[in-house]
């Protein structure tokens, strides 16, 4: 009896081992066969990736997951969201636990190369700032933070930028490093740190969602880094990479052409060749990507164009009320630019 149990256990263990390489097959096919997209998102960052008051995931990064699902399956809801901490995110992508990572992740050369990832189009341009209490009225800029205790998330480019900035300015500081953002913010609002540093969009989100009195806290004017965010996939499947890339570009292109979720149906049967391609009325693009011809139509119809997504999640219609700034389209003074969708 005992012996039978042993052999059974061994057989199961071997079965798990043998099952592993199956996921090393192409991601594109695996996602298609599974019928649902595993998308790595933030554990809860208002505006970028967090469950809303109805329990549905929402945010600028979440919209990228939804766009890819809309392109792949024609249904933006076919996403399984996998909330990840900063420290889990790359391992989750490398190991195949998720198909793509859309979690306010800064693109760096090291992440692009050594970590074996490919980054899609930048979907948000940010910079690192400092949030302080207004009680520290003497602090007018980050240069006044000499000797301060600073709360920072571990394992981020933020942590390195912070150290670099203080080293470059020959100032000392004490880091308080807590893994979970909620705990970190709680420590800051309890007065454990003089300042909390992160991407300024994230600080705005923390302030609006967690501060006991948001008006008592202010962002310092300095931005000490470039933080371009982009969705990431792992190396090894270019078809999958292409789909993620063009799903985001389609949102840019739709905004540039004035195509939104509200008016897309009324634009059907028009004569503008770019819009005809976007709506899938001129076939070819979908086949090249390996999905239905109406892939871009489904993205815009179900998720909206980039401008709609921005306004809804982080811009004028959201709690964060971030200005478009660098995230405007290229022809409106920003950096958002799609190569021709053709």
């Amino acid at each position: 009896m005992k012996r039978t149990a042993f052999w059974a256990a061994l057989a199961i263990a071997c079965g798990i081992g043998v099952a592993m390489p199956a996921q090393a097959g192409t991601t594109f096919d695996a996602v298609k066969a599974r019928g649902i997209l595993n998308c790595g998102v933030h554990t809860g960052l208002a505006g970028f990736g967090a469950p809303d008051d109805k329990g549905e995931w929402a945010g600028l990064d979440v919209d990228v997951c939804r766009a890819v699902a809309a392109a792949m399956f024609g249904d933006a809801k076919k996403v399984k969201y996998v909330p990840l901490t900063t420290q889990q995110r790359f391992t989750a992508l490398q190991s195949g636990e998720i198909d793509m990572l859309s979690r306010n992740t800064t693109v760096t050369s090291q992440r692009d190369t050594e970590l074996g990832m490919n980054f899609g189009p930048f979907n948000f341009y940010d910079g690192q700032g400092f949030l302080i209490s207004k009680k520290l009225s003497k602090v007018k800029s980050a240069k006044d933070l000499k000797g301060a205790t600073i709360c920072v998330l571990p394992g981020t480019t933020t942590e390195l930028n912070l150290t670099d900035y203080f080293r470059a300015n020959k100032m000392n500081f004490k880091p308080v490093v807590i893994e979970k953002q909620d705990e970190l913010a709680a420590a800051f609002f309890a007065g454990r740190c003089d300042a909390i540093t992160s991407d300024s969009s994230q600080l705005a989100s923390i302030r609006s969602a967690q501060a006991p009195k948001p008006e008592d806290y202010t962002l310092l004017p300095d931005l000490i880094s470039k933080e371009p965010f982009a969705p990431a996939v792992r190396h090894g499947d270019d078809q999958w990479f292409d789909l993620v890339k063009w799903s985001v570009y389609a949102m840019f292109e739709a905004e540039e052409k004035g195509v939104g979720s509200a008016n897309i149906d009324s634009l059907k049967g028009g004569s503008d060749p770019t819009i005809k391609r976007l709506l899938g009325e001129t076939p070819g693009l979908g086949k090249a990507l390996g999905v239905n011809e109406d892939w871009a139509y489904q993205i815009v119809k179900q998720v909206g164009n980039y401008g709609e997504s921005f306004d809804r999640n982080v811009g004028a219609n959201s709690k964060l009320k971030l200005p478009r700034g660098l995230n405007s389209l290229w022809n409106q003074g920003g950096l958002m630019y799609s190569p021709p969708v053709r």
Binding site: T86, Q87, F90, T91, Q110, R111, E114, L115, P154, G155, T156, E159, L160, V176, V177, I178, E179, K180, E183, L184, A187
Partner: peptide, 19 residues
Amino acid sequence: AIGYPDLVSVGNTTINQTG
């Protein structure tokens, strides 16, 4: 969980920075 820089805390940061 509470930000004391023990071996796991430093190790986690190292893993994340180097991959």
